[in-house]
Design a protein around this nucleic acid. Structure first.
Lengths: 122, 122
DNA sequence: TCAGAATTAAGAATAATTCCTAAAAACGAG
DNA sequence: CTCGTTTTTAGGAATTATTCTTAATTCTGA
């Protein structure tokens, strides 16, 4: 593992903000100014393949990246688009029953209105 | 409702293939050759706002669009990326219990290996 | 230490989507 | 209807996110 990749992985693992590639790039630049955006994307791709991180595709925002453990789900605010963590239990078994076949996994994105937006719109 | 919008909506409602904007554009052009891609995107955006259609964001493919009723879920093949319909029951109540707050809805994307890919990789 | 392999920085290229503008179409009051 | 106002369109430029290319750099292990 190169130090570039290590740095990118550390940023994701220490972040609870589900950063975009661009945000990771900016943060990583502070430590390693010679880093290229292309390198960030390439390493993100490699780590997703390897299952070391997760990719969250969400509407109206570029892809976001998230640490992989412990397994958890996500909620997106319908007003401001911010993503937060939540934890619904493991639905794999129920889903497998419904579809009648083995599944690899699933992504659950719950839509809600976040606390901050609830206040503002009142 | 303009005829352009009507046409785009019809294509989505009569399709089970979860078309991309580009695919909708191509199909619509056959009926209305003067149609512009920008118009397709603009109308898709309007109809999503209005809740008339759904947007499916998926990895490694542009956004796809889907009819809204009857409510159903989706499975994406981990090998070829194709999206198919499935129907898991309504999880809203369970999710609300878990998060302890009202939710607007959710998107569930189940990852599996589609029949066609199961054959090919054996 | 050195050759070969892997990875990088930099930026060009591509893909998807949004934005802009002038023209065309739809609408509404008279 | 018909004129003026508003909305929507076509067409294309602009923007954004991401991937690709290449030469240079770094790592690796005999």
């Amino acid at each position: 593992m190169t130090k570039q990749r290590r740095l990118i992985l550390d940023i994701i693992n220490n972040s609870y903000s589900h950063p975009t590639a661009e945000e990771i790039y900016k943060e990583a630049k502070e430590t390693m100014p010679s880093l290229a955006l292309g390198t960030v994307y390439r390493n993100l791709g490699i780590m997703i393949e390897a299952g070391e991180i997760r990719r969250l595709v969400s509407e109206s925002s570029p892809d976001r990246y998230d640490r992989v453990a412990p397994t958890h789900d996500h909620m997106v605010c319908a007003v401001c688009g911010s993503i937060s963590d939540t934890s619904i239990g493991d639905l794999s078994k129920d889903i497998e029953e419904c579809v009648g076949d083995e599944i690899i996994g699933y992504e659950l994105m719950v839509k809600h209105v976040c606390d901050s937006c609830k206040k503002h719109t009142k």
